[in-house]
Design a protein around this nucleic acid. Sequence first.
DNA 1: GCCGCGCGATACCGGTCGGTCTATTTGCCG
DNA 2: CGGCAAATAGACCGACCGGTATCGCGCGGC
Lengths: 201, 201
Amino acid sequence: MPARSPRSRRAAPAGDARERIERTAYQLFSQHGIHAVGVDTLASHAGVAKMTLYRHYPSKDDLALAFLRRREELWTRTWLANVIRDRTRKPAERLLGIFDLFDGWFRKANYEACSFLKTLLEHSDPRHRVRIAALGHVQAIRALIIQLAAEARVRNPERFALQWQMLMMGCIVAAYAGERDAARRAREVGRLLLQSEARRA
Amino acid sequence: MPARSPRSRRAAPAGDARERIERTAYQLFSQHGIHAVGVDTLASHAGVAKMTLYRHYPSKDDLALAFLRRREELWTRTWLANVIRDRTRKPAERLLGIFDLFDGWFRKANYEACSFLKTLLEHSDPRHRVRIAALGHVQAIRALIIQLAAEARVRNPERFALQWQMLMMGCIVAAYAGERDAARRAREVGRLLLQSEARRA
DNA sequence: GCCGCGCGATACCGGTCGGTCTATTTGCCG
DNA sequence: CGGCAAATAGACCGACCGGTATCGCGCGGC
C-alpha cells in the first residue's frame, strides 16, 4: 500500500477517483495524444468532477507526466521488459523477440503507436517539462536495450542500442503508416545487425 | 506559369498574398506542427487579413494539404531526390548518401524532423484528409527509394525500400530525440543491409 | 473615369481550451 | 453526534479555436 499521507485518511472510496482519472488519462492520451484530449473530456470520461481532477493534479501537464510514468510502468516495464525476459534466456533471442512482440502489437485493432514518440513529436519546445519527460522515457528504453546488448556480448553496447532503437522506432512509425509487416521486416534487419556485431566469448 | 484561371486577372500584386500565406504556413507548420499553429497566428505572421487567407483556402485543412504538397516539392523532390542524384551516379552510393544528407540536416539549429511523420502522428483518425495526404507523401518517398533500390540491383526492391525507409524514419526520430550521430549510425546499418541485399549483375 | 475585385482591418460567431470558484452532498472518524 | 475531508455539479473566467460578415481602400482594366 503506497502510504497515502502522514496520517491514514479514507479507506474504501478514496483513491478510487484518482485511479479512475489516471486510467482514463492513459486510455485517451495514448490513443489520441495529449493535445487532442481536453480536461473536460477527460473528467467526464472518468466520471469525475473537474475539480477532483485538479485536486489530484495541479495542471494538465502534471497529469500528462503521470500518464507517461504509467506508460513506462505498463508498456516498458511490464509489457516489453518482462515479456522479453520470460520468452527465452538467450540474449540475442531476447533482442530479436522485441520484434516478435511488436508484430502482435502492430496488428491490434486500435494500434496507438509509441506514446513517448508521439508526445515527443507534438511538443516542439525543448524545455517543456512534458517533452523532457518523454525524452527520459525513450532513454529508459535504450538503457534496457543496452543491458540486453551487453548480455549478448555485443562489441559496443551503446552504439548497438542506439541502432537497435532506431530500428524499433522506425518500424513503430512504419506500422502507424499502415505497414502491417513492419515488425517482421525490422526483425530481418535486426538479425543482420546482430550478426555483424556479435562476438563470440 | 500555372494558368491562374480562365481569364487573366491581376499581374503584379496578385498572388503575392497567396505566396506569403503558403510560405508562412510552410515555416510555421513544419516547425511547430499543424495543430499548434492557429489561423490567426498564421495570418498575422503572413501580414495578411484572415479573410484573404480564407479566400485562397476554404479551410485550415486545405491549407495544411497545400503545406504538405509544398513540403514534398521542396523537401522530397528538390532537396532529397535531386541532391541524391547529383552526388554520384553509383546507385548504392546514392542510397547511402541519403544519410550523409541527413547528417547535415540533423545538425541544423532548428531541426524540425519530418513534417509527414509529425502530421501522421498528430492525426489519429485514419479517414482524415490530412492524415491520408501525409501517408501519400510518405509513400512517395518510398517510391523514390524503390527506384534507387532497383537501380542498385537489389534482390527485392519493395522489401528493401520498406526496410531502408524504416531506417530513415528511425534516425529522423532519434535525431529529434537529441541523438546527434543518428545519421551516421543509421548509415552503418544501411551499409549492412546493402551488403546483404546486393547481388552482382 | 468609373466599376470591380483583391486586399486589409476589425468585429463577431459559437465552441472549446486550461483553470478557478462556490455551494452542496457524501461518508469516515473520533 | 459533530466535524472534517473528499467529491460532486455547474457556473464562470479570459483566451483562443476555426470560420464568417462587413466595410473601406487602392489599383487595374474597360
